[in-house]
Write a protein that binds this DNA or RNA. Structure first.
Length: 141
DNA sequence: ACGCTGACTATTA
DNA sequence: CTAATAGCCAGCG
């Protein structure tokens, strides 16, 4: 299998080569969300993103073993507002580190403001030094 | 049931 | 480099 190895996008390797097994899923889902509850699975992972770190839709999908379910992850974010416990949706961006979901916050600037409060700098909807802030659920959990 | 839609990603040309 | 295309799959009308 050929791999496009880009240091900034190394999690692609995981998406192609390995799926998260059940054991891994247990670790990833502290609240023990039922397997069929996709939204809760996503939220569980997002809640574990540390302050000042970010991850991508695809990385979350990969951690859940859904190889190409990135769109579903974004969709889960859309439904994440008002959840208890809260879901830090601003820490989830697309694979390039762009704030593709900013328009779904209460104001379009809120996503950037939340990130910058956590010392993540954003210029023109692009996270600066994205690779330094990147947090890979497959590696960290 | 059906056919969109989408806070996405990967591949190919 | 850009653009087009194809997977993806849960909701909603």
């Amino acid at each position: 299998m050929k791999l496009q190895i880009n240091p900034l996008k190394k999690y692609w390797l995981f998406m192609k080569d390995s799926k998260a097994d059940n054991k891994h899923l247990k670790k990833v889902l502290p609240s023990g969300a039922p397997e069929n509850d996709f939204f809760n699975q996503v939220w569980d992972i997002v809640r574990q993103i540390p302050k000042g770190r970010v991850t991508s839709y695809g990385a979350i999908a990969a951690a859940l073993g859904i190889k190409s379910g990135a769109r579903m992850v974004g969709w889960a974010m859309n439904s994440s507002h008002g959840q208890i416990p809260p879901v830090p949706a601003h820490r989830v961006v697309n694979r390039l580190g762009q704030l593709s979901g900013k328009n779904h916050f209460s104001t379009p600037d809120q996503m950037q403001e939340l990130l910058e409060k956590e010392k993540v700098n954003v210029i023109n909807d692009q996270i600066i030094d994205f690779e330094k802030h990147f947090w890979d659920p497959l590696k960290e959990l």
